[in-house]
Design a protein around this nucleic acid. Structure first.
Lengths: 194, 194
DNA sequence: TTCTGGCTATAACGCTTGTCATAGCCTAAC
DNA sequence: GTTAGGCTATGACAAGCGTTATAGCCAGAA
């Protein structure tokens, strides 16, 4: 017999990712995450005994994997298609939430770590960026770009999209995303065409 | 007799900008801002009667103007020089703080506003981005780019640098900035050369 | 049926938060 | 010397924070 819809643990993770993508990590309380997932507060500490950091880490990894899956799928049709999917994905997030949500990975990436320590959530954010870049770079190389150029373009794409999403939120407009999209598309066409 | 170095009010604003660039807005308390500026808590509410939002707004505008001034100066030598200055500026921030600080404007831009309301600090962030883009776009147009392309490249530069700074913090490395720099430089050369 | 163990409910802990109010200092004008 | 006013000092307020502890429920195995 199937469980009633989504299991609690998973709901907490996806809900946490959603809230972090809106408010940032430190502005999101565990109590609110629990309420948002319709789970009792006690359950969060049952499933995530290390507390907020663990929950944040899993939330980052969750969206990281989700985006990576979509990216991997679309990249089968080439780097340009992958880029377009990546752009469309974040455009949808921003537009569907009336410019309230962005990328939870970025949100976690800009939280200051304690001195001489690297919190697991920050480490996870670095790994997610690396993963996305890797997928894009691989595809670019497979389509004729040399290794260094592929790596540079991949980094530029991830960074530009992340930054653009933030700009869209501030301006409450998707126009920055249109502009960035045009330039990145041209850049890929150029790199693979020449 | 001259006052002891910087006046209190200014110290509070620059200190607030610094703290916000590290921890984000909501993780930075007014008490800590006051302490960081060696000012009494009461003074923050004396100088900024609207409280935290006003302080954040002024902090955003402060760094916005500061960066704009530097950008305007360096753009006199052309868009490529301006880009390089912009890159160097943020590389220094990230490197000098051991990857603890980033851009306070981005930090404010990704804070969720209350529904149906636009906090002044968020509005200020949008204006700062617009200002930086405008400076870059003007320079690009003056050097031969057509209006649309200039606007697109300007947006891409600001977004990419903002995103890259965040990636550098997550990875604790300036390599993303190197890669982004190479691509953006090539892009400008291309746009003005063709 | 009894028992086990995953999950929940509830309350509490010490601490920090944004903000406000009140009283006081202490310099500068008159 | 007196007076005004910008700034500071101090403390309080209600609310929220992350986290822990304890006791209880309630399905499935024995």
């Amino acid at each position: 017999m199937a469980k009633t819809s989504t299991p609690s643990r998973e709901r907490i993770v996806t809900g946490a990712a959603d809230m972090i993508s809106r408010r940032g990590l430190s502005a999101t309380s565990i109590r609110e995450m629990a309420k948002h997932a319709k789970a009792p507060l006690g359950s969060t500490y049952h499933y995530f005994p290390e507390g907020k950091q663990q929950l944040a880490t899993e939330a980052v990894r969750h969206t990281g994997d989700q985006v990576a899956r979509s990216l991997r799928q679309e990249l089968k049709a080439g780097p340009a298609a992958g880029l377009n999917a990546f752009l469309a994905l974040w455009r949808k997030v921003v537009a569907d939430t009336d410019f309230h949500a962005g990328c939870p990975v970025l949100a976690v990436a800009i939280e200051e770590p304690p001195a001489d320590e690297v919190p697991p959530a920050l480490e996870a954010a670095a790994e997610v960026f690396e993963q996305w870049e890797g997928l894009l770079a691989d595809s670019l190389r497979e389509h004729g770009a040399d290794a260094e150029q592929a790596a540079q373009i991949a980094t530029l794409i991830v960074a530009a999209v992340e930054g653009t999403v933030a700009m869209c939120r501030a301006k409450r407009s998707t126009e920055p995303l249109d502009r960035t999209a045009a330039q990145l598309q041209a850049l890929i066409a150029d790199a693979l065409g020449g």
